[in-house]
């Protein structure tokens, strides 16, 4: 058992006060610009607890910027993010993690010099509390804490079927496995909202199927709410419960996959019809 459970900051997804289907996170009227360049213009949408929410759109539509706003890496000039009923505009990314938002990245952002195990363990840094004094001694509380978290991490390693690369420096792994390790690191944070930025980019069909299965399992078995960006339309339509479509930084559609698929504005955006 963790000797210092920090319930104020971290709430494990299952013991959540928010019921399934209620609003977990809401983006309200968010606009973001870099200098004069507008990346996002007045976007609003919500993510409900327990669902898989897809954010799609052509290249440069502002999808990654949207994720960066949600997890506090960028601060929008206008608008608010409401997560678990708490409204905010600016925050430090490590606070977002403490509130239960974890993510993966478009271009894998792993710690290349560290092993798979260490990468995933690093995801639990915010959950570990032992001070430097105990760490120096190692034996005793620090070791107990290390083992407790190691067990959780080994569960994730089992779940993602990456036991064989446990000790391998991730820099040496093939791209598909790196993506999987990165998912593992995000899961290690025990998030209630998981943001996935193109989890299947650069993968072959088989790897995509594996990754889809992992995403569905995470959603169903662990009850984690997921917001993902993906270019493969087949994957998006199969996985997601609801889809929001961005184009040139604006929201052009929002709804269930079937409805969005037949929306004229969406079809135009993907075919490149001039505005």
């Amino acid at each position: 058992m963790n000797a210092h459970p920090d319930h104020h900051i971290i709430v494990a997804p299952n013991e959540d006060s928010i019921a399934k289907g209620e609003t977990l996170m809401e983006v309200k009227n968010v606009s973001l610009a870099f200098g004069g360049v507008k990346a996002i213009t007045d976007i609003s949408f919500d993510v409900r607890k327990g669902e898989i929410r897809a954010i799609i759109g052509p290249n440069g539509a502002g999808k990654t910027s949207m994720l960066n706003v949600i997890n506090g890496f960028y601060t929008p000039q206008i608008g608010t993010i409401t997560f678990r009923g708490q409204e905010r505009r600016a925050m430090k990314p490590h606070h977002a993690v403490r509130q239960g938002i974890a993510r993966t990245f478009q271009n894998v952002a792993l710690f290349k010099g560290m092993s798979t195990l260490d990468n995933i363990m690093a995801g639990r840094s915010v959950l570990m509390k032992r001070s430097i004094g105990w760490q120096m001694l190692w034996h005793g509380p620090a070791l107990a804490e290390e083992i407790e978290h190691r067990e959780k991490v080994e569960e994730i390693i089992d779940f993602l079927e990456i036991e064989h690369i446990r000790r391998t420096p991730v820099g040496k792994l093939p791209y598909g496995l790196q993506k999987r390790v990165e998912l593992g690191r995000a899961l290690a944070m025990e998030p209630s909202l998981l943001l996935l930025d193109e989890p299947m980019a650069g993968m072959n069909l088989e790897e995509k199927e594996d990754m889809s299965r992992f995403i569905l399992d995470v959603n169903q078995q662990r009850g984690t709410t997921i917001a993902l960006i993906e270019h493969d339309m087949g994957v998006v339509m199969d996985l997601s419960d609801r889809v929001v479509v961005l184009d040139y930084g604006k929201k052009i559609a929002d709804g269930p996959p079937d409805e969005v698929k037949n929306n004229q504005a969406v079809i135009d955006a993907y075919l490149g019809v001039p505005h």
Binding site: N71, F73, K92, P93, H94, V97, R98, A102, R103, F105, A109, L110, F111, K112, G113, M114, D118, M121, A122, G123, S125, V126, M128, R130, I132, Q135, W138, A142, E145, E146, R185, A186, M189
Partner: peptide, 22 residues
């Protein structure tokens, strides 16, 4: 231990380290 891992994470990619909550 934990502190060593956070150091190495900052070394390997500080932005990612911040985004995993370090």
């Amino acid at each position: 231990g934990r502190i060593g891992r956070t150091w190495k994470a900052v070394r390997d990619m500080d932005i990612a380290a911040e985004l995993v909550g370090i």
